[in-house]
Structures are given as C-alpha cells and as structure tokens.
C-alpha cells in the first residue's frame, strides 16, 4: 500500500522529532495502524493531546461541536462533568477555552484516566480532575469524588450499535477499545443512563446545559430520550452535514 504524500510528510516529521526510524513508522501505517497512534499526538482545537492505543482518538466532529459549545457556555458556569472522557479531549478543551470552568472527568478504563490526567498536565490545565468510575452503575451519582450540582454535563458515549460494529473499518475495530465504541445492541444504552442522571435531584444545576455527541442517524432517537424526561433539546449539525450533537437544557 502506498501512503498518501501528506501522511508520509507527517510521519517524516514525527520520525525526525522523536529520533525514530521513518521506515518503521511507515511500515506500521501500511499495516493499518491509525496515523495518530503512530505519531502519538492529535491536535484538538488549540491543544495538542497525547493519544495511545486503545484509548479513542479524538475525532474532528467532536472538535467542532466542543468549540461551538465553548461559545455557548454562560460565564456563570463553574463546574463541568464529562462522562467517558477517553483522552480527556472534551473537558480539557472546554476548561482551556472557558477559564471560569473547572472540570471533572470519569472513565471506566483506568488507562483513559491516566492518559487524561497526563494530557491535563501537558496542556497546563490545572482545574481538572479525572477518576475511574462507571456511570452505568446505579450508585454512580453518590460516587465520593463527584461534587454536584454541575453546570455543564458533556459526553461522547460509546454509540455504535451491534450491527454497525461488525462493519467498522479495521483501522477502528483492530486498534480502538471496543468499550469506547460499542453502545449496546441499539447503540443507545448510554443515553438512557445519562438522561436518568440529568434529571436526578440536585445532580445538575437548574440552568445546566447538557451536550452529547450522537451517531450519524441517532439525533432523533436521542432527542426523544431527553424529551421523555422533560428536557428541552436541539440538534447541532457537524461540518459534514450530519446531526451530530444533542443539546439539552433543564431550564425553561
């Protein structure tokens, strides 16, 4: 397989920067390993994050809605919670862009917690703490490290349904953590859990904003889940024309 010239250039730079032999990097790429894992970083907005397998590589769709969200977060907002944080990309960029925010981030995978913590240091974001927790756990809301109420709740939860999981490109399936991708048989399991949390007494502040990434055809279903617990919702479109983000509000 011949690599596109541009990828080759990025690999060449990565090889020179870290004093690694280029041909080894090229071979890994030819075998299908994602470019971001080989290089070891991914820019996300103005930040540069470390990435490593099998923690999910931050996607451009996510970068786009997070930057939009930063402009919508009111200055009065102080506390943010990110569910399933992976590399920490969402809370780190928001804390970077909104200096009044401090962020909590959780992930079931301890390796993600470590990576997110590392990335906070790398980006000099001090108002950040990541810890291991399972937000599907019925007792999650009383986890000792949480300090509700939160003013902003974000999540890019695993959303790929069973039938689509089988069809994923090798580059995704063979390298990224299934726990980061698989959203249960319907792909919607995690949204139900998040909706329950969102309306739990005192978990969110009364004018909290909730932002959730959804799969290419899930906007309507996810919107309905949040409306069924009496939240107002809207959908944001990504740069490729897909309804990608559901925004839900508690307030009126």
């Amino acid at each position: 397989m011949r690599l596109p010239l541009r990828e080759l250039k990025w690999l060449r730079k990565a090889a020179a920067d870290a004093n690694r032999p280029l041909d080894a990097l090229v071979r890994r790429r030819q075998q299908g390993e994602p470019l971001q894992y080989i290089i070891g970083t991914q820019p996300f907005g103005p930040l540069e994050l470390s990435v490593r397998p099998p923690i999910l590589i931050p996607r451009p769709e996510t970068e786009h809605w997070v930057i939009e969200l930063a402009a919508r977060i009111p200055e009065s907002a102080r506390h943010l919670l990110d569910l399933g944080t992976g590399s920490g990309c969402i809370p780190l960029l928001l804390a970077h862009l909104c200096p009044a925010l401090s962020a909590h981030a959780v992930d079931v995978n301890p390796a993600a917690v470590t990576l997110a913590t590392e990335n906070a240091a790398r980006c000099s974001v001090t108002r950040f703490r990541a810890f291991q927790a399972n937000f599907l756990d019925p007792d999650f809301h009383v986890h000792a490290m949480l300090c509700p109420p939160y003013d902003v709740l974000t999540s890019n939860p695993p959303y790929i349904p069973w039938n689509e999981y089988l069809e994923l490109p090798d580059e995704v399936k063979n390298y990224e953590d299934p726990r980061a991708l698989f959203g249960g048989p319907s792909g919607l399991e995690f949204y139900h859990a998040i909706a329950r949390l969102a309306v739990r007494e005192r978990f969110l502040s009364s004018d909290a904003i909730i932002a959730l990434e959804v799969g290419h055809d899930q906007a309507e279903a996810v919107g309905a889940i949040f409306e069924s617990v009496s939240l107002r919702t809207e959908a944001w479109t990504d740069p490729w024309g897909k309804k990608r983000t559901i925004i839900a509000y508690r307030g009126t």
Binding site: P169, D238, W240
Partner: peptide, 13 residues
Amino acid sequence: ARGAGGQHVNKTE
C-alpha cells in the same frame, strides 16, 4: 465525505 463519521471513522480528514 466521511461516511458515518464520528466514532465510526478514525481517518485524518
């Protein structure tokens, strides 16, 4: 075009 995009695709585009 990015197909389904999001978590489905990790190509650099």
